[in-house]
Design a protein around this nucleic acid. Structure first.
Length: 497
RNA sequence: GGGGCUAUCGUCUAGGGGUCAGGACACCGCCCUUUCACGGCGGUAACACGGGUUCAAAUCCCGUUAGCCCUACCA
């Protein structure tokens, strides 16, 4: 009996949504959608200092912009509420549950209070390590010096440690904890290499249970939220053997795990600020389509296979969301980290812009356009978009359309010198006299002028571009004229005739 | 130090005993062209290193090297 697939993305609010996180979220989302399951957004905010409503909002907005809609989690922009039956979806609001579960472990003797102070631990660590051995809390190397056997009462503040399996524990396989990973394959961790780790920090007073730690909360939440597939960054692979015994301690089967490789910068180092854009909002600001970001991110570490074969042409690279969802399979994911390729993203973006309709593009383009854009009629917008739809980004398109909104203030000197010749002068005057601004009308009028003045298309088109746009670059010349509009064309031509 | 993961063109990757090692992006060249672009055609370019196993190794095994992760009362 297989349960409904449930995946989750659990970022901590750091003030930005990292592009690597988005990719992880995308995989979770694709997997859930592929299997008709649910996708949960959960906020890991046990690091109190940076967990503000604003920072949580940044995550929500980033996810929403990317089109990664969640079935359960916070309601966008409404900090007080959430959707889904397993809320709240912010860890700080789930403390009661965690404390209950910790008490349960304490009662069962599967966890114990530890009064060792940081200083004591540090000192012991130093002595053990200078002796050339590995320090572990009350495990072999440091035997007998922990609190595990001490049966501490609750009369002193204490942290709480989880008793990790050792020896002949049934959850061990030949002394190893094995993580069955859908991407990495089976990975074995010798139980002896793991520690009795802290599941709750030292409480405020005697008997208190302090703030639980990340690895503990994850397990409680994933269990409580019925997560079936934990898809996360492979920096968590090493945390998994700590978590598996915890699932066992709670008497639940662990979910399936899939650890996706990291995204690296172009130089192979971990993607960070110095590589340029790391935050999803920066990609938004660059004029990228969310669909392009999704595709580019998905294609990092994932090779879609159509009938068992990888895509073999540029055409096939351009998967729609529907295709991605249909094709997504963790078995086709790479084990090794991938470098982020901005060129490929740009190319994807360009292709996706090209094949979108103007109506699809308009809402994405709008934020990059001046106020006056709003007032333009649809036909004009359609033409403006279609005339610039070869750009690599929305910002390129906006830039290419500036001439339609602003009179040029400065004129490219070289271009003026080259194209504003005495010979085109009279032709320019005649262009000002044209009245039929339909494409056909302009073309006819244009050709007529060329013929009578013995000019080549290039001569007049370039001179016009300079006069209208201040530079020799613009969309097709008829589009340029139509977008500027007759009255404005006449006005801009004025100083040249 | 201990434990774990990884390794094919510049980048993303296909291929998992016998391939001229395939594709995409980028790059270069040619063509098209009213500018910038788009588009079309073509090209350069890779199995980290060393040992095995085998008639045969990019592919299987073992080492080495390099990178990354965990080894916190961070997440």
């Amino acid at each position: 009996m297989s349960r409904q697939v449930v995946t989750r993305f659990a970022p901590s609010p750091t003030g930005m949504l990292h592009i690597g996180g988005v990719r992880t979220a995308l995989f979770c989302w694709l997997f859930a959608r592929r299997h008709g399951g649910r996708f949960i957004l959960r906020i890991e905010d046990t690091d109190l200092s940076r967990s503000t409503d604003d920072n949580i909002r940044i995550i929500e907005d980033g996810m929403a912009w990317c089109g990664l809609d969640w079935d359960e989690g916070p309601i966008l922009g409404d900090p007080g509420h959430w959707k889904g039956p397993h809320g709240p979806y912010r860890q700080m609001q789930r403390m009661d549950l965690y404390r209950t579960k910790i008490q349960e472990l304490l009662d069962k003797g599967l966890a114990y209070r530890c009064r060792c102070s940081r200083e004591m631990l540090e000192e012991r660590r130093r002595t053990v390590e200078t002796a050339g051995r590995v320090f572990q809390y009350d495990r072999g190397m440091d035997a007998g010096k922990g609190c595990a056997g001490a049966n501490h009462d609750a009369s002193q503040p204490a942290a709480i440690r989880f008793r990790m399996p050792l020896g002949d524990s049934p959850i061990l396989d030949a002394g190893d904890i094995v993580v069955k990973d859908l991407i990495k394959g089976d990975t074995r961790f010798p139980a002896g290499s793991l520690d009795d780790w802290i599941i709750a920090r030292t409480g405020a007073g005697p008997g208190d249970i302090g703030v639980p730690t990340y690895n503990f909360c994850v397990v409680v939440d994933d269990t409580h939220m019925e997560v079936t597939h934990v898809i996360r960054g492979d920096d968590h692979l090493n945390n998994t053997p700590k978590q598996i015994p915890l699932f066992a301690a709670f008497g639940t089967a662990p979910p399936a795990f899939a650890h996706v490789p990291m995204i690296l910068g172009a130089d192979g180092a971990k993607l960070s600020k110095r590589h340029g854009a790391t935050s999803i909002t920066e990609y938004q600001a660059m004029g990228l389509l969310p669909s392009a970001v999704r595709l580019a991110l998905a294609r990092l570490s994932w090779t879609p296979k159509i009938h068992g074969k990888a895509v073999e042409s540029a055409e096939e690279e351009l998967l729609t969301d529907e295709q991605m969802i249909q094709l997504f399979d963790l078995a086709d994911c790479q084990k090794s980290p991938a470098r982020f390729d901005m060129d490929k993203l740009q190319w994807l973006n360009q292709k996706l812009i090209q094949r979108a309709s103007w109506q699809e593009l308009e809402p994405h383009l709008r934020p990059f356009m001046p106020e006056a854009w709003q007032g333009k009629p649809d036909a004009w917008k359609a033409q403006a978009i279609q005339a610039t739809q070869k750009g690599k980004s929305l910002t390129d398109m906006a830039e290419a359309l500036r001439f339609a909104f602003e009179r040029p203030e400065v004129f490219d000197e070289k271009a003026v010198e080259k194209f504003m010749t005495a010979a085109v002068q009279p032709a320019l005057r005649e262009v000002g006299a044209l009245t039929d601004y339909s494409h056909e009308g302009l073309e006819a009028g244009f050709n007529d002028i060329l013929e009578r003045h013995g000019l080549k298309t290039k001569d007049l088109a370039q001179a016009l571009r300079v006069a209208l746009c201040g530079r020799p670059v613009s969309p097709g010349i008829y589009d340029t004229l139509m977008l500027v509009g007759r009255d404005e064309v006449v006005a801009r031509l004025d100083r040249w005739v």
